[in-house]
Design a protein around this nucleic acid. Sequence first.
DNA 1: GCTCAAGTTGCAACCGGTTGCAACCACAGG
DNA 2: CCTGTGGTTGCAACCGGTTGCAACTTGAGC
Lengths: 332, 332
Amino acid sequence: MSVTLKDVAALAGVSRSAVSRTFTEGASVSAKTRSKVEKAAHELGYSPNALASSLTTGRTKLIGLISNNFHNPIFLEVFDQFTRALQERGLRPLIVNLTDETEPANSVRMLRQYSVDAAIVASSTLPPSFAKAFHDAGVPVVHTFGRSATSPEVHVVGIDNVECGRMAARELLARGYKRVGYLGGPKNATSALDRYRGFMEELANHPEIDVTHCFADAYSFEAGRAEMLRFLEDTTAQAYFCGDDILSVGALSALKDHGLQPGQEIGIIGLNDMEMSRWESVDLTTIHQPIKQIITSSVDLIEEMLKEPQRYPEARIFPCRVIERGTLRPRP
Amino acid sequence: MSVTLKDVAALAGVSRSAVSRTFTEGASVSAKTRSKVEKAAHELGYSPNALASSLTTGRTKLIGLISNNFHNPIFLEVFDQFTRALQERGLRPLIVNLTDETEPANSVRMLRQYSVDAAIVASSTLPPSFAKAFHDAGVPVVHTFGRSATSPEVHVVGIDNVECGRMAARELLARGYKRVGYLGGPKNATSALDRYRGFMEELANHPEIDVTHCFADAYSFEAGRAEMLRFLEDTTAQAYFCGDDILSVGALSALKDHGLQPGQEIGIIGLNDMEMSRWESVDLTTIHQPIKQIITSSVDLIEEMLKEPQRYPEARIFPCRVIERGTLRPRP
DNA sequence: GCTCAAGTTGCAACCGGTTGCAACCACAGG
DNA sequence: CCTGTGGTTGCAACCGGTTGCAACTTGAGC
């Protein structure tokens, strides 16, 4: 059926080892043999079987990419960046969709069956135990968008969510809002909790400010909309920090229902700066999370771990900044 | 490092074959041996190496999932559905992001290196030659969202795009629009061409109707917006069929810029019925494409091809229907 | 022409499994 | 007690590669 080492060796009139060596970096082959082999390989349309070689080398170049977030548009950007960054380095993403899975053991077993070289947990709504399960099973792992404080044993790449909460609070204060609210993601997401903490900490210095908060069921449009509708029934905040752009977009939709003009009557600041936030019809003031840098750095880290498996764990934290658009009133 | 057959065999006091057989469906092992092996395997935390076994069985359960569409939110739904459908059947998606790739040969080679059991080309903007390249290389392939007419040798799952174009035209006619336009996807997408053809064919029966058209650069918000802005400069159509919801959303944004009220002053009908189209702030009248059925069927077909590789190619076409929302004026 | 080091090559064992085959076993039927 | 049968088991070869090792080739230096 498919062309193997043996076929090429036969055609080129050399041993199987010689063929193998011409296809492995830095092996000792003479120019003459190499060219004979390359000619034969080309003639037969041979390409080495990566899986078979993984048996002896222990390297598959397969990277498990684990996520559960398929309802937040930012994740289309995340998948795009991850798949491209991995491909550029000759690595292959093996996707695991954890939407209806809560047990780390299953994913770990599955990815070990396929001998992935490493795993990337790309979600802030998966508990630290997920990344830790891979680490404990001896699989190099990076938790992208994770929280470093509670995962000292694994590599974490992302942002300082507490600081982002503070940043949002400062931004609302600077614009003179007196009654503010936090509309966060699900309570099981470390990002939602940390952003909440930062927001509250900063406002604790300003006891004159009135604060409310809530946590949505998910990082999704519907959840953001539902919570904002609830707020609008009895709360009188003038501005909200929504813990994610997709929640913000849901919230904006709720405001529209109530005939409220974002920016003018009610302020909204999001977090992520997803593509959609730039759309004129959304025009969301938001905190930019440097997705591209985070992902490139995650993949760099993966590569380095492959070279040095016992690498001491680190957290790579990237700064965020406010992007001014139309959903907050201007600074005085 | 990791636990192998041999370790389990040694602990259980049986041969390696016995261990292998307890883990393969339908092999002949006595209840006694099986329980001994299972006990030992559990004790050591053994799980078989899928890649090693693929060497002899020729099955990896790896499925190449190839796409280039990472700027259309519908693809988040597509990836979600695909990854789940594959997982449910014990198959593993190996993603290939073709955003900056135009040469099929590379992807084919790559996926053959990983011995994928089959490939799914999930895009209407990739040329038929992509799917064909896999077919020619002996890799079972399904072109989801493909066009059956120009790909008789590969399996295609999707919708009848020509009929959708007609459907859109009929819908605009039924609502009494006299000047209409088609705002399609990129010209290299079979879907964009076929929808165009159907739209025009239907309108050819109504010479009194004034028709314009254009093709956007991509299936993206920006492209849809840009084309609609261009239309608004000199065209006076009353309603547009946008060949995709994301183009529609871009177009809606352009209308808003010009102070035009969709539904009232200018009609828009999309195609896909993505999640966002249901949002109150979008509220897009659109043609529903049954994504879930298409994907489930694609994966079913993949499974059947694995059983019967020489299966005669077929096209599975699912009917679409108009979803009435707020961007077309009501039927009289 | 001889020596020797460096570079090249093939053999054979191995990676972690699967599987055809023949030997073996227990047991039912005569 | 013998025979035949069907189920179970282990051996050994194989899947498509890699790699340590020893043997070989080559060519420079004297």
